[in-house]
Design a protein around this nucleic acid. Sequence first.
DNA 1: ACCGATTTGGTAGTAACTATCACTGCGGTA
DNA 2: TACCGCAGTGATAGTTACTACCAAATCGGT
Lengths: 188, 188
Amino acid sequence: MIQTHAVRLFTERGYDATTVTDVAEAAGVSPMTVYRHFPTKEDLVLVDQHGRLVAERIVASSAAQPLVRRIGGALIDSAATLTGGDDLTAGKQFLLARLRLMISTPALRAKHLDNHYALQQAIVDALGDDAADPDSAFRAQVAASACLAALHTALVRWAEDDGRTELPGLIAKALAAAFGDDIGEDLR
Amino acid sequence: MIQTHAVRLFTERGYDATTVTDVAEAAGVSPMTVYRHFPTKEDLVLVDQHGRLVAERIVASSAAQPLVRRIGGALIDSAATLTGGDDLTAGKQFLLARLRLMISTPALRAKHLDNHYALQQAIVDALGDDAADPDSAFRAQVAASACLAALHTALVRWAEDDGRTELPGLIAKALAAAFGDDIGEDLR
DNA sequence: ACCGATTTGGTAGTAACTATCACTGCGGTA
DNA sequence: TACCGCAGTGATAGTTACTACCAAATCGGT
């Protein structure tokens, strides 16, 4: 509930022009309570379940597939879950509002990209490749970071489109553009 | 000079444990002067010429090559320029110290990644592809973001290695891991 | 020697946090 | 029913990054 009020206020008045106290008042709680649930102001926008979702699908994926396909598949699946179902849902609009804030507000954009970096580490761990071989670990890091970069580009495009395009398809298109159509096609 | 003192203090005492006032005192100037040259505390570590260097090499590259090769070549060239010449130079050590801070400090890491995002836009602009075609623009964004992700992974590896490996080679290896050996090999 | 422009410095203020302590409501137990 | 522990909430005071505004100094050129 606090997050809902926060995103609404940030969208209406702007992120920097809205203080944490404003959010607290709108939600009918004290500033302290806000800080207890959201360690930083940025987290009011950034907190979600995406990372957990992706990591779960990575571990569930077959280790026989190439790295990029395992990661890409997890990203597309997670996106399908998040945006899935009927159109024009409140959840989808909320996701779009948060995404727009993340893209346009420097502080949010920076921390969001840093979250992607943390997600990258989670993905590499979830891949379960032997960390003994530094070369294999390096390839996993590269694959994860490149996939997430493609994901981010797709997310930006999706937000620019106001969510009209299907997000999973966009991500597949981005992956195809990055790694060649042979990888991306199958994922669509 | 201010930046040198800042990086030294941040490395010695830690980023969060060092105030801007501490940096100002060490450099023998007032806090105001620090803020005038470096808009934010993070910029004390992050400011450099890398973005300009990369953008210049992108515009100088041949538009006939595939996107990833144009961008990758520019990244490798720039890295060669920055780390180039003799080993153990003060400049290289300084770069390493800054990089270590960027990787280990959350606030710096976040803003650094955001700088990469800005660099991505600069690269796309420098590519000079027709922005009229949204599909072509999308592919340029994807290529740029993925290349920068690979670059970042290479930089992390380079820092973990204390700069012993040749950076341009590492970047080429990362690009090869992401986009296939056929792209990366030629760049080495 | 002078003057315009750039650089530097001081003061006061805002807002994001943090540490610490006190209070309130709630379920389970004797 | 009285009690206990505990999670959630709140108030106060302090630190620090950063900004707006104005004053002083310093520097290069005529």
